[in-house]
Each structure stands twice: as C-alpha cells, then as structure tokens.
Design a protein around this nucleic acid. Structure first.
Lengths: 127, 127
DNA sequence: CAGTATCCTTAGAGATACTG
DNA sequence: CAGTATCTCTAAGGATACTG
C-alpha cells in the first residue's frame, strides 16, 4: 500500500490525543468551518453576506466560527469605519492553502454520495 | 481564482442544509471516523486491536462509529465463528477511495500546524 | 451592521455493568 | 471477545433580546 504511505506507520498521531494533526483536523471538522472557508474561496464576504450565503447558521455560531478561524490564522478580519460599520472577512495566504485539500474532499463527497446513499439503503433494509 | 474552480459558484451546496456533500462531509467530520479510516489504511483491525490503536476512544463510540461507517459502505465487517468470536473490520473499495483526499488533508494539517499554533499565540496575546 | 449576552435544549460522548 | 444497555454529564448550538 505504498500509495497511501503518508497515512501509514504513524503510531504517534492516532495514539496521541494531543497530536497537532488531530487538533487541526478537529477544528476544520466542526459544523461550519469548511462551509465558511469554501464560501470565502469565492472572495471576501461581510458578516451579513455570509449569513445569506449560509442561511441556516445562527449569528452566534457565525461570529464564533469567524473568531476561531481568525485565531487560527486562516481568515482575516477588516473593519471599515463606515456607519453603520462594515466588516469584511477574507482568506489569509495560509487559509488559501487549505482550499486544495478541501476541494479534493468535496470532489470525493460529490463523486461518492450516490454510492453512500445506496449503501445506507441496503444496510437499513437488511438489518 | 480558476485554480479552485471546483469550490466556486456552487450556490446550491452551501445554501442547502440537506445537500449530499454536506451530509457526507458531516459524517467524516465527526470525532472518530477519520481516525478509524486512517488506521484501517494499515490493514484490517479487530475490535480490540482498534481500541489499542486509538486508546482514548470508548467501546461505545468505537462500536457506534464502526456501525456508521459500515452503514455508509466505507468499511466491511467480517465475523469469524471462533470462540470467543473475533470480528474484523476492513476498508471496502469505496472506503479506499477516501484515503487519498484524507491524506491530502492530513499532510496539510501536518505542514500547517506550526503556523496555526503561532497564529493562536499571536491572537491570544493581542486580544 | 455587526456583533454580545443570556437562556435553554439537545446531541455527543464517557463510565460502568451486563451478555451471547 | 465483541459488543449492548443504561445512566450521566458536558458542550454544541439555536432563539431571542440587547448594544456600539
């Protein structure tokens, strides 16, 4: 299985709950992060624009996820002193670098969702 | 931004809470799925072997995540009628196909965790 | 507009004890 | 060994009302 060598023989990262890879994966694995990052791939968005782009996120979670992503250095926050104030969020250079791997996963999900749906139906029918 | 075209101009999938891509991403985004899939990349594991490979997972969550992944058709469960019984879990062909995109994300996490840690320190210090 | 603060409900997940 | 059942606790997250 040399083709997936980067996933193999790494006793450390599965075993260690504090492993940095786990830590990072947990963050992007939360309910809204990837959705926000992917939306920002289309360009900077303001707070309210993001709410329109992802209608089922609450203000609370949007604000919190923005904060977390900014803290991780994946997005940047710019305040324009208009009135009322407007705030723009954009990907940082670091944030841009996650788009490729994320896109690969999205492509996989898109390619596989039919097979998965079918597998679920079969499973639910036989058990 | 033509390089990330697969993430752009897809009003449907961010807006629609029931989008299949979201659904699939949510599943692999849970706490244990990726860890289990990545561990199975090294070959089939029995229940107890997986517990040793991921020491901080509880029996309950391991059983549940195994069930969910089997339901999605990503892993297969084989019971050998020894006594006491032994059960082996392995990736299905479909399950194998997720390893590449997952590996890309793991590589990104590995490459970026230093930058992220640094960003967090800076953020926490200035705010 | 872009948030915070507060309250409240549920889902995620651990611990433990039991079973085929 | 490979689970299930139950009980419990916490944290994720929604709704609403308020503020610079």
């Amino acid at each position: 299985m040399f083709s997936h060598s980067s996933l193999e023989h790494q006793p450390g990262w599965s075993r260690d709950p504090n492993c940095p890879v786990r830590d990072v994966l947990d963050r992007i694995g939360d309910k809204w992060s990837t959705l926000i990052l992917v939306t920002l791939a289309n360009g900077p968005h303001r707070f309210s624009a993001m709410q329109r782009a992802i209608p089922d996120i609450s203000k609370r979670m949007l604000a919190q996820t923005f904060r977390d992503l900014e803290r991780d250095g994946l997005i940047a926050r710019a305040v324009f002193p208009t009135k009322p104030p407007s705030v723009e969020y954009r990907l940082t250079p670091l944030g841009e670098t996650i788009l490729e791997p994320l896109a690969a996963l999205v492509r996989w999900a898109d390619r596989s969702h039919a097979a998965i749906t079918h597998a679920r139906l079969t499973y639910d029918r036989t058990s």
